[in-house]
């Protein structure tokens, strides 16, 4: 079987279970983002794939071969570290050629590969520069090139872009994704930035407390979050209480939402609805009535905060569909049933 198979991996540090019985299949050539808050076990999982931590139990299988007992240096992988870990005593070229050099590749072979990779990362002619003289983005690229020098089977990145400023980070996300698509290499990135995950991944794996909470393509994670944690962690959402009234209708904040069905046997649940799906209009019997408490006009989008009882609802609109509201005004909040996701507890 081709690809990476993570088979019931567990890692315990003393009494603390960092990774708890994780199973995941990553098909060959897939870009995976391990996403979650700090301490969720994503980095530990990545380090176990790299062989930098030993799993307490379970197996890691790459292209049908169990690599769990292999030490890191025999796994044929490329890894980019959070600190980048560029060797300060070596030049850019020597950093990139490191893997080739310790395997005894000839000088010409090393130079050829270094030039190839430098072109790939848009830094031709940088081979002789000292690492310390590079900018943040350049160091980033060199670290990526170095990890790819041997065309590894697996490309692992641990929070690779966290040291960059916001603008550069977004540009690098796009570049990294394009690079991965061109090379077709199986890639696993650890990140806590959901935008980053949405930008790059084929498969987003949301982790919490050492477990996988949901593994799905980005848009599915966004549209169909498995639970309240995932819904809240990915983007901004409204988590609203829903219940079934005596007439059998599903109501949110006391207003019936026709067309929204609860799973059989469930009378109370949380419903997630994205702010861009919330419509504001005139108060009326079919809408939830609330009061506008704050309007944030960001230019590209307008966020309206509406208070219904003690619950706050956020609605996002583009300037073109700008709702005609002002702070203090009464508004009617409409929740389209097809946009509401009933969450499991």
């Amino acid at each position: 079987m081709s690809g990476l198979d993570i088979n019931a991996i567990t890692k315990a540090f003393g009494n603390f279970i960092a990774v708890d019985n994780v199973r995941l299949n990553v098909p060959h050539g897939t870009f995976v983002c391990l996403l979650g808050p700090s301490g969720c076990g994503k980095t530990t999982l990545l380090r176990m794939i790299a062989g930098l931590e030993e799993p307490t139990s379970g197996a890691i299988v790459l292209d049908g071969e169990d690599i769990t007992p292999l030490p890191t240096h025999k796994r044929n992988l490329g890894m980019v570290f959070q600190s980048l870990a560029l060797f300060p005593h070596l030049s850019v070229g020597d950093n990139i050629a490191y893997a080739l050099r310790i395997r005894g590749a000839s000088k010409e072979e090393q130079k050829k590969r270094v030039d190839e990779l430098l072109t790939l990362i848009h830094l031709p002619g940088f081979a002789d520069r000292p690492v310390a003289k590079l900018s943040g983005g350049q160091r980033q690229r060199v670290a990526i090139a170095r990890a790819l020098a041997l065309s590894p089977k697996l490309f692992l990145l641990d929070e690779p872009l966290s040291a960059l400023d916001a603008k550069l980070r977004e540009a690098m996300q796009v570049e990294l994704r394009q690079l991965q698509q061109r090379l077709g290499i199986t890639t696993i990135v650890v990140t806590h930035d959901q935008r980053e995950a949405m930008t790059m991944a084929d498969l987003v794996v949301v982790m919490g407390h050492g477990r996988i909470l949901q593994a799905a393509p980005p848009i599915e994670i966004y549209r169909k979050p498995a639970d309240a944690f995932v819904a809240d962690f990915i983007g901004i959402t409204n988590l609203l209480p829903a219940e079934v009234d005596s007439a059998g209708r599903t109501t949110i904040l006391g207003t019936a939402i026709p067309g929204l069905a609860m799973p059989a046997g469930v009378t109370r649940a949380s419903v997630s609805i994205r702010p861009e799906d919330v419509h504001l209009g005139q108060p009326g019997s079919r809408a939830i009535t609330g009061q506008v408490t704050f309007v944030r006009d960001l230019g590209g989008t307008i966020e309206t905060f509406v208070e219904v009882g003690s619950t706050s609802i956020i609605a996002v609109a583009t300037p073109r569909e700008r709702p005609n509201v002002s702070v203090g005004a009464k508004v009617g909040v409409t929740l389209p049933p097809e946009s509401c996701v009933v969450l499991g507890s």
Partner: peptide, 10 residues
């Protein structure tokens, strides 16, 4: 992580 990086490169 420098040492770990070297290990990942073989």
């Amino acid at each position: 992580s420098l040492v770990e990086a070297a290990a990942t490169m073989g």
